[in-house]
Design a binder for these strands. Sequence first.
DNA 1: ATAATTAATGTACGCGTGTACATTATGTCA
DNA 2: TGACATAATGTACACGCGTACATTAATTAT
Lengths: 340, 340
Amino acid sequence: MTNRKEVAELAGVSEATVSRVLNGIGPMKESTRERVLEAAKRLNYELNAVASSFARGRSGNLGVVLPYVPKVHLFSTYYFSELLSGIGEAVRSKGYGLLLLFRDPTATYDYVSLYRTQRVDACIILGASAIEAELEGINRLAEEELPFCVMDQKFDNPLVSIVAADHEQGSYDAVKHLLDKGLRTIGFLNGSPQYSNSWDRMSGYRRALQEAGIQPDESIMYEGNYSRTSGIQAAKDVHRDLHKMEAIFVSNDRMAIGLMQGLRELGCRLPEELKVVAYDDSDAASLTEPPLTTVKVPFYEMGRLAAERLLDRLTDKGNTESVINERLKTELKVRKSSGN
Amino acid sequence: MTNRKEVAELAGVSEATVSRVLNGIGPMKESTRERVLEAAKRLNYELNAVASSFARGRSGNLGVVLPYVPKVHLFSTYYFSELLSGIGEAVRSKGYGLLLLFRDPTATYDYVSLYRTQRVDACIILGASAIEAELEGINRLAEEELPFCVMDQKFDNPLVSIVAADHEQGSYDAVKHLLDKGLRTIGFLNGSPQYSNSWDRMSGYRRALQEAGIQPDESIMYEGNYSRTSGIQAAKDVHRDLHKMEAIFVSNDRMAIGLMQGLRELGCRLPEELKVVAYDDSDAASLTEPPLTTVKVPFYEMGRLAAERLLDRLTDKGNTESVINERLKTELKVRKSSGN
DNA sequence: ATAATTAATGTACGCGTGTACATTATGTCA
DNA sequence: TGACATAATGTACACGCGTACATTAATTAT
């Protein structure tokens, strides 16, 4: 493997000059620049990323922490590929690497160790839930003021950086849409309460109803776990209560799809007998019959934003405050399932 | 950030001894070992991964190359999470990192550069298709004898390492299952021909028919692109040709789900009017109505195997030959969609 | 024309670790 | 007890790059 020294010799300059040319640092004669680049090309030389990282004292990697396998299945391909693509785009444009990290469900994940061992310069944590081990790990990160960001979840700790969508407002919009059509009895199939954004959805749901002067009815609120299976399972209860509601708001597309599938099997006609508004606007949303009215969430942008902000913070670009706290807007996509 | 020197001082030994204790190398007195470990703990010391990589001349990372975004959507969450989990498991158990790399569709990806810059020690390439730029990049890797592995695709070049499932046999089994039930007219909805494993499926399909003395009928062979949408689209043609076939073999679950959805909307009763056998055994397979008879593919094992073999090769463990060529067995899962 | 400034390049060292080799302690065997 | 093998530890340096500082060349100001 050829190194800087050889390039320097071939170009007839010092190693430092080679380094400067390759990193575009300081003023230099164009002719020198060209000689060095030419020499590098001839020798098939490229900067050794590991040595470079070592000299800089940084790994050059952004870590993305994934929940352990069973939880991963709760994410859709859409969610994942959008989020990761957004992160990937930011990471690439800034010359960083993207290190994938799987959480170990058995142990309190020692996030701090990732930094201490210099495996990552920053982290984005996906699918964080409100269980003890997770909170502990995240709070320790915050204490040490390490650059990290939790994706799409809330935390009490004001030192925890977060990029999320405004699910309270998104849910409000979804329910308001149904109310505006004159529907008054609106059920709710929510996801697991272990995720804070489930609470946000509940909050938006209630706000919309209350603004319309409607007392929320606990007997038509259901709980799934964001999976399609749980939607199918909920179908039985929803079907039983069909006389009590004209519409239902579902916390994500996958559950909505499962719910509709289950209801149809029970002989329910959609959207005639029940209007449905879902959440995410995943690929599948427009493919169902009827197509889903759903709340579009800007996953790609969320991923990109989180990564950009973290990486910017590393390079101190206008780093006024280090805690990230972003709420991105959602957008209601009206399709047939809500009765249009 | 504390370093080796401080630990050595606190423990009253040399830096080399600290290094040996931490890497478990050579004979050493248990008392020394304990003193060092104790000192490391007191100082909150952990090995600096970057410096370590640098000294070893390796990045310690396994790269996983993903196709660009639009293609990603063709994979299911099941496929991805299984494959990545398998890879992740191997990578973790061997103390490596998992670097995610997104292909740039516009350029001939310079895979070799990943090694030259020492960003990765080995690579697994997912979703490789038979387009020119891709072939070129992969063949160059092979020429340079770099440690890499293509996942679930065939290549003519015998120097290209591959871990794949035996889709020829898997498809044969699927069709044979239908034949064994006395069905004689069996259609085929295949995926994009740009992927070699689509050809394998076709081959298995034909072999099964021919062994049964049935002349394959081109007029009931359809082509999708592995997406659910393409399954829905195929439904129209299949519905039109329903009188020509008793059953259909579909190249993956997603298309099968789309197809069944589309057919049902056209008033087709399943499995009464058409038996369906699909492929992958993804999560969704058992959730459809009727549940899918499908070919289970060991994605997790494939990921793990590929990663293990690559990483073993790096450490020269019984490295008899360096080209990996594995075909894993599939397994038919019989459910209701094939008429049981 | 000379001083002052800036451009362009070179010199030298540190970053934290792995490890070859040298050295010293410990044990074994006669 | 001495010769010798082996265990245990220390010494010293390489790895490839970034960069502070020193130096030299070119430009500008006076």
